[in-house]
Lab assay of single mutants.
Amino acid sequence: TIEDAIKKLLKLAQKGQPYTFGDFTVTSEEEAKKLAKWLKKQL
């Protein structure tokens, strides 16, 4: 689910690992949080 993807994304971001989700490449926890907010709006 999208919720699971968001959780995984935040965990990876906390470890400092870049994470690619579709067109987004997230390289920081701050970016992960922005992406998570955006994804929730898409639901």
Results as ranks from 00 to 15, higher is better:
T1K: 08
T1I: 07
T1F: 11
T1M: 09
T1N: 08
I2N: 01
I2L: 08
I2R: 02
I2Y: 09
E3Q: 13
D4F: 06
D4H: 07
A5M: 14
A5L: 15
A5W: 15
A5Q: 07
I6K: 00
I6P: 00
I6H: 01
I6G: 00
K7C: 15
K7H: 05
K7V: 07
K7P: 00
K8P: 01
K8H: 11
L9I: 06
L9H: 01
L9D: 00
L9F: 11
L9V: 04
L10H: 01
L10D: 01
L10T: 01
L10R: 02
K11D: 08
K11T: 11
K11P: 01
K11L: 13
K11H: 10
L12K: 03
L12A: 11
L12V: 04
A13G: 06
A13Y: 07
A13W: 14
Q14G: 10
Q14S: 11
Q14V: 09
Q14H: 06
K15I: 10
K15L: 13
G16T: 07
Q17C: 15
Q17N: 09
P18N: 06
P18R: 06
P18I: 12
P18G: 07
P18C: 15
Y19I: 14
Y19P: 06
Y19M: 05
Y19D: 03
Y19G: 07
Y19H: 04
Y19F: 15
F21Y: 06
F21C: 15
F21P: 02
F21L: 03
F21S: 03
F21D: 02
G22C: 15
G22D: 10
D23H: 09
D23E: 09
D23P: 13
F24Y: 06
F24D: 03
F24W: 13
F24K: 01
T25Q: 05
T25K: 07
T25V: 11
V26K: 04
V26R: 03
V26C: 15
V26L: 04
V26S: 02
V26A: 06
T27E: 04
T27Q: 04
S28N: 10
S28D: 05
S28H: 02
E29D: 06
E30G: 04
E30Q: 07
E30I: 08
E31P: 02
E31I: 12
A32P: 01
A32M: 12
A32G: 02
A32T: 06
K33W: 13
K33M: 11
K33C: 15
K34W: 12
K34T: 05
K34D: 04
K34Q: 09
K34A: 10
L35A: 01
A36V: 13
K37Y: 10
K37P: 00
K37G: 05
W38P: 00
W38E: 00
W38K: 01
W38F: 05
L39C: 13
L39V: 02
L39E: 00
K40N: 04
K40I: 14
K41E: 08
Q42K: 08
Q42I: 11
L43Y: 08
L43H: 05
L43T: 02
L43V: 06
